[in-house]
Design a protein around this nucleic acid. Sequence first.
DNA 1: CCCGCACTAGTCTATTTGGACTGATAGAGT
DNA 2: ACTCTATCAGTCCAAATAGACTAGTGCGGG
Lengths: 199, 199
Amino acid sequence: MPRRALDNPIVLPVLGLLLEQPTHPHQMLAELRRRSDAHAAAITRGTLYNTVAALTEAGWLAPLERQRSGNRPERTVYTLTEAGRDELVRRLDSQIRTPKREFSQFLGAVAYLGALGRDGAVEALTERGRRLRQRTAEDEQQLEDALAAGVPRMHVIEAEYALSLARAEIAWVDSAAEELRSGALTWPTGAAPEPEEDA
Amino acid sequence: MPRRALDNPIVLPVLGLLLEQPTHPHQMLAELRRRSDAHAAAITRGTLYNTVAALTEAGWLAPLERQRSGNRPERTVYTLTEAGRDELVRRLDSQIRTPKREFSQFLGAVAYLGALGRDGAVEALTERGRRLRQRTAEDEQQLEDALAAGVPRMHVIEAEYALSLARAEIAWVDSAAEELRSGALTWPTGAAPEPEEDA
DNA sequence: CCCGCACTAGTCTATTTGGACTGATAGAGT
DNA sequence: ACTCTATCAGTCCAAATAGACTAGTGCGGG
């Protein structure tokens, strides 16, 4: 009986999807992956079915009907209950209201940038900038297309947010690379941070 | 025998720490938590010991000595091997070079901002802005103090990066809240996205 | 018209993880 | 001196996860 299952990161996407329409787990997975909706890409079957079970037990989801086409495995369609809708709003509100220090791989890597040596660091950062710029350009294009096609802005708002952050990252990466190149940002000692006599 | 253990997110912090100095797992944990070094906060004992074992087996770490003081549990100090140092550099380089779409809770929540209703959304975003501004001010202060105290910039570079992103987030949150308030960003239909006849 | 391949929907198990537990030592307070 | 608590350093197991596996269906190509 899933205990922590109720606060794993895929709960929100699941509730969010069901707000739009009742579906069965397999379809959720496909849909979430298609949208790459958030971290959805990281969802795996095990977690999903497990989570759906937990949410059902918590009374936030309810099985709506079981269908089967031909002799395919039976599938169960779930809806959001009243309580589920409330819970979604509660979580949404709290997650927006309260910033949490989240954590990206890149941030972790930057902390040890020193280990790459000056030239290596410049090289890698420059490359990142290049790729980031390209990806961002594509995303911008996509967003524009969607808006041009009449999709309401509210529906692409997270793309706008992601773009803002991406632009900020590009700016930082560029400036860091530049400062390293020009020598404005210098190396403390060798490759490794100097082993000071303790902190 | 840990299989996926070699590519879990704490590998980099562990290798990074050992680059500075040999240590035993318990100390790594304490140190990583103290620095809140990256997601380090998320590290738990189980994972850490497991990872250290895997890294050792992979030949990137080697037990240096086993010490014991008094009748305390014996502790094993590990060092980074030559291969481990190479691996660290390889990972660092690739993680910096290649941007990955990482994923934050907030991004996921923003996607369903609509479910909060206009006023709720404005409220929540405004509050986030407030908290973010405060936290960022503190971080700026800390960074300044560190620099004033003579810490080389290279050692606080990840803090500089985090600050840039935080400022960008603040800007976005403020502008989104403002647009909602002013009506420049409008609601498509009711609380839920309209149930179109499929995509 | 038959074969292979991809998709549909889930189930199920080996691996991983969180975090409770152990059992010692050092210092704080009384 | 004597509890009480915090820290030290791990081990260990129930719970959660990744992703292999099952098993039926439909379609494209030779």
